[in-house]
Amino acid sequence: MSSLRSAAMDSRVSQLVTALLAEPSAVEPAWTRERLEPVVRRVVDRGIFSLGDVRVYVQLAESLGDDFESQRPHAWMRAWLDDASVSDPVARLHRVVRERRRREDVAAQNERKEAAFRLRHATVGEGR
């Protein structure tokens, strides 16, 4: 039974990899089957099967690196992808994408805020 399931998973991974390789690549160097297959397998093993959702995960790997889940700054994403407090794996994936965008926004806002803070108070100091 388990070998049957494993064969079905292998087949689904292969289909998804083929479909993704057929799409125009947005990154350099372009994905190869050898690099893309373990990335797709990671997401399929989590119960995410649709091409659109798998593409979302692959885009994360494109921008952060194939093994981003094991990198310290992105380790939270792995924890969120495996978070059993959210029962739907697709919801977990989209939550990670939304959160990443939100964190990037906060970091950018903080940089702007720090620049404004420095400018405002430094100007007041010079005026004295």
Binding site: R72, P73, A75, W76, A79, R103, V106, A107, Q109, N110, K113, E114, F117, H121
Partner: peptide
């Protein structure tokens, strides 16, 4: 004196800076 505080959580999330 004015200060700006930035805080990071244990998973490296940066919170909005506070003045």
């Amino acid at each position: 004196q004015p200060y700006l505080l930035k805080v990071w959580l244990d998973d490296e999330e940066e919170l909005p800076a506070r003045e």
